[in-house]
Amino acid sequence: METVYDALDAAHGGGGQWAFGTGFDDPLVGVDTTVPDGVDPADLGAYCLMLGDDALVLAQRLTEWITAAPELEEEVAFGNTALDLLGQARLLLARAGSVGVLGSSRDRASATVPDEDALAYFRDADEFRCTGLVAAVNGDFARTMVRLLVASTVRLAVLTRLRGSRDPVLAAVAAKGVHELAYHRDHAARWVLRLGDGTAESHSRAQAGVDAVWPHLTDLFTATDVEQRLAAAGVAVDPADVREEVHDVLATVLTRATLRVPDRPGDVPPRGRTGVHGPELTELLGTLQGLAREHPAATW
């Protein structure tokens, strides 16, 4: 089969510009993976799970749009965003595994399953540390774009600060991630503008999306003990620090989109970050994990 490809490469300069494949850049090449002094590896791993699970679960939600998007251009955009988040999830889960934070997953997954997959496929819902914001169902295109706007605004604010983390791995993941997140936020914001200020129908759908997503802000800015300890050690970001920035960005976009900005929901103690989830996460994981769990000894 080689001849076919050779002829093509020759015909097209072989630059590979158009082939987007499996070659994900590894931002950890040359990065020191030692745990910083004075940091409990269990805390570091738990924090990586929080950020990693957010990315994994949102990637899964966005992937649900593939073959169902409004236009082909949007199919491709959903694919790009999901691929970016999946890439971030893989690095963060692998980092959690490398510092020994694997929960019960190692008891269930066979030895040949890499850490990132053990964590993604063999933990139960109560071991996941994602927020309710990303676990919520998609709803229509408007609600999906509002959720993406909120989630990417929060994550961009966190990763922007995390570039200065004392943990070199988190810093490297954040440095790569901010470019991706800036694009996701931009794309979502453009759509929210168009839906909010488009037709009467799109406006009411967008407003309904905002109203449905807003309650999920309630536990986004309250830190867990892990985040507090790591933030004090210069490793993590205290989510309370990004609250004002996030609200400013969202208010700016929604106002320009002629949408009503709901009142800020009151802060409650962290739920998703401590493993408290609704049935929608269990359902999502049932789909995501089903096949891998059916064949625990298999290699893929």
């Binding site: 987007f20 251009e73 491709v76 955009a77 790009n80 691929l83 970016d84 794309h187």
Partner: peptide, 23 residues
Amino acid sequence: SLHAPDDEMAVHAARDVYTRRNE
């Protein structure tokens, strides 16, 4: 070519489709 509602969205879609995340 591609289809887009306006110039801005066209640039976005072009980046997604024709450069596939190459910065």
